[in-house]
Design a protein around this nucleic acid. Structure first.
Lengths: 265, 265
DNA sequence: CGGGACGTTGACGGTCGTCAAAATTAGTGG
DNA sequence: CCACTAATTTTGACGACCGTCAACGTCCCG
């Protein structure tokens, strides 16, 4: 009730999603100022001069096909990436081969922050659908951050947001049961999609049951069973990866038992 | 084998842990240059001029008694804190009152990064033993980061390190069983303590079984039982909160079954 | 010395993982 | 465009792991 507005629904990112396309080559010069994800992505209130500096940062883009990797654990870190279009997952792998999906990222969100500490990436970023990202050389980003105060703070916020998001995931993994996790997952996804202009009641899952399960710390069979239970209860309709939320309030009640009595009717 | 040296054993932090003590008042002027945690905490290779700028950052300190809070969720964010001495836990609380310990922090580590995104803290930081922290006003830190390149990068690394640490915790919560989690927890703790000059085979737990359980996503009874099992197996000796590791190799085998065959004899 | 917090241990049950088989869909090459 | 194979999803049966409830033991501090 007193805390910052959106609890921990992993909000958005920097991302400079340019829209002006130069057909001449693969590496495309683009303009952040015209980008449709401008609001999600850039600090507000920059002067034109500052804006020019920031644009010099996003010099080109890269396409990643579905199933392709943007970067892999162990690779040298040089760039951050802002997602223009498409959908990614990030996974870490333990020494003995255990795999864990650590997040799903969509347009306007940032990838690569893990690589800064050791100059090498510590996770894989894999496209779950054809994607297009803005490449931001990190040394260049640091340089411009030193000049443009607004950008510096923006970068700090993005990293802090990721830390807070992961805190939320830890809470989920550490203290919720299967139904609660899946309900929280669906609400979070649909909320982020809604912020990007999509429906707040329908969504298409870009990932498999197994990937959902890995993220939520449960097996794919349990994910499937939990979906079936939600369908039985009339909370959602599921056809393949297409999910329709029929009773969002019920989902919220599942996540936060007893805490949504007299609000948001 | 190919990845960065230390997998994800949550390494250390910025922290300017000054050592020269001025007895005249509670808010104490201190010198990072003389601090014993200097190496853990500051970027290396700063000029004397830069060092002076950085020192202006850590203008004073604060003591927190055992059980006291450094900050609470919902409070306004203004400072980062570097731990000089003492031991903290951070916890997040969900709307319906669920509680999750998100980390344990010791000397040389940083607290408060969660507050940057929304200008308000999103977790509680509670001292598990009497503690002493350096206060670093964040706006001041940003200002000096713009001047001192080495400090800027250092701050970015600290935030990235926290992201990578949390990735490791997610892997643990999402894919490990009780024994594996506790083994990983003990190895991580002892490794961080060792980096601070303590024994690599003995440690004193600063937290209760319940707090360990919250962090590891299990109940306090399970923590206790798992300790007992390790004792039966001769892997550790436990007397109260004093833990002695008798067979570190066995602990590693528990965490990473099958992956430590021919190394580190 | 006594009360309260913390820790240990036991018995039991529920949640979810495991194994297996079948159904449905997606992807590939002819 | 269709056939065929691989991948994904669903559902069932069973059991292990761990949570729950409860009682008892231990330590610390006033």
């Amino acid at each position: 009730m007193e805390h910052p507005k959106e609890s921990h629904p992993g909000a958005d990112a920097l991302a400079s999603i340019p829209v002006r396309v130069d057909m001449s080559k693969q590496a495309i010069k683009v303009a952040c100022a015209d980008c449709s994800l401008h609001d999600l992505c850039l600090p507000i209130g920059l002067s034109t001069a500052e804006m020019d500096r920031v644009e010099s940062l996003v010099s080109n883009r890269r396409r990643v096909k579905r199933g392709g990797t943007l970067f892999r654990s162990g690779e040298k870190f040089t760039n951050l990436y802002a997602i223009r279009t498409g959908f990614f997952k990030t996974c870490v792998t333990s020494e003995d081969g255990r795999d864990q999906v650590t997040g799903f990222q969509m347009a306007g969100e940032m990838l690569g922050l893990d690589g800064i500490v050791h100059d090498h990436h510590t996770c894989d970023a894999i496209a779950l659908e054809d994607a297009d990202v803005c490449i931001m050389p990190f040394d260049h980003l640091e340089e411009i951050s030193r000049e443009v105060k607004g950008l510096q703070h923006h970068v700090h916020k993005i990293m802090s947001r990721e830390i807070v998001r992961e805190n939320g995931v830890m809470l989920m993994l550490g203290s919720m049961r299967a139904e609660e996790r899946l309900a929280a997952f669906l609400l979070n996804l649909v909320q982020r999609l809604h912020a990007r202009g999509f429906s707040s009641t329908e969504l298409v899952l870009r990932m498999t049951r197994e990937e959902i399960g890995s993220y939520l710390g449960m097996k794919l069979e349990t994910v499937s069973r939990t979906f079936s239970k939600f369908v039985e209860d009339g909370i959602v309709a599921v056809k393949q990866r297409h999910v329709q939320i029929l009773d969002a309030q019920a989902l919220k009640e599942i996540v936060n038992p007893g805490s949504c009595a007299l609000q948001a009717k």
